[in-house]
Design a protein around this nucleic acid. Sequence first.
DNA 1: ATTATTTTTTAGTATAGACTAAATTAGTAT
DNA 2: ATACTAATTTAGTCTATACTAAAAAATAAT
Lengths: 220, 220
Amino acid sequence: MTTLTYSEENYLKAIFHLSEEGKKSVSTNDISAEMKNRPASVSDMLRKLGEKKVIEYRKYYGVHITEEGKKLALQTIRKHRLWEVFLVEKLNFSWDEVHEVADELEHIKSRLLIQRLDEYLGFPKFDPHGDPIPDEYGDIRSRPRLPLSEIEINGTGQIVAVKDSSAAFLRYLDKIGAYIGARIKVLDKVEFDGSVEILVDNKKSVFMSKDVVGNILVMQ
Amino acid sequence: MTTLTYSEENYLKAIFHLSEEGKKSVSTNDISAEMKNRPASVSDMLRKLGEKKVIEYRKYYGVHITEEGKKLALQTIRKHRLWEVFLVEKLNFSWDEVHEVADELEHIKSRLLIQRLDEYLGFPKFDPHGDPIPDEYGDIRSRPRLPLSEIEINGTGQIVAVKDSSAAFLRYLDKIGAYIGARIKVLDKVEFDGSVEILVDNKKSVFMSKDVVGNILVMQ
DNA sequence: ATTATTTTTTAGTATAGACTAAATTAGTAT
DNA sequence: ATACTAATTTAGTCTATACTAAAAAATAAT
Ligand SMILES: [Mn+2]
Ligand SMILES: [Mn+2]
Ligand SMILES: [Mn+2]
Ligand SMILES: [Mn+2]
């Protein structure tokens, strides 16, 4: 059984997330940017994660996460998201306050704790940001979703998740009433800068920048 | 504002607990035994804690915890005990399963988290082992209590806490029905080995060793 | 008052995880 | 094919926290 330190768990989680973003191999610089550590520190950690067989590491050619690594990363992600649900549902945190705390709680090592927490929360399938919660075997059932930016004029949909979980972005969404589950309709799109006019929840028309509509995920 | 690492918090908590056990100054060896680290490691840590002014450290003469140190230790203890209550009350842990997990959870750094947890649990005053929970200013109101070993023959009382929180001891207490709140009566005492016969909860007569009755705390 | 024992500290080493600066490799442009 | 640039790794340093072995101080025993 592979055991990882807090730091190794954080790196592996970052590598997993970067892997999900399409590209086959993840670069040292990508990880460096994500983790806010210098590339030299990343290289060192990659060597260690390679030795532990949670990634495949070929010097100078980036890394691939292994099946074992994926499983471990999903465990950490599961814990992170369950704790986020707990904080919001039980402790009345708002969705922009949970991230840092969950980033610490996700490392607590107790199988029983997570089983019981899951049960206590009613086996939630999604976290407060709409992200799917893997089961204890690492199985994850994500619903189909696409960026709001890709909806055509007059197209409609429902917000199911956010890509960016920063407090600033989430508070902005609160302000315009764009919560998870809200219905949206695209009223107009500006070719020039990618900005969009959206009808939120059938009551409010809001102009959103390209950046914003790229970070809102909807299902149709 | 003094910030401590996980390790420093653990040492300080140990020093605080050892200080409470009567003696004015705590020795390096005491701490070493409590923390299961070698004395040399303890010496090193004492120097650091001394520099941070959370203890008074005179080489070769043991340590005293300072007011600042006491406050910080009580914060950690508060978190530890609140998490224990959470685990037992909300996640259905039994009182012998909570200690290790709480020992990790106690280090999570979020003021809001602890305030909300406290509120969510209904501002509990005692943890599952009967130990008092300090408030957010470090004030702690302990109820008067004494070891069961000090009750005279025919004396009665009520179990309010346990000194030893090891799983083995707590499971033994479960077996004999000696939960927190149980009424007890001392039926007989054996001079020779300090063992005692106790009527538990008005229904069960149990023989307990000196060791056991020394670790059960009662109020009369 | 010496000597012996126990306790504690110091010195030196190890590992984890970060850093900077320098060297090396891969990829791109001429 | 060669030279330039960007990405990456290596080398060396630092801090935190542990360890063992040796030295030093305090305490106990004679
Ligand atoms: Mn984390
Ligand atoms: Mn989330
Ligand atoms: Mn702890
Ligand atoms: Mn307790």
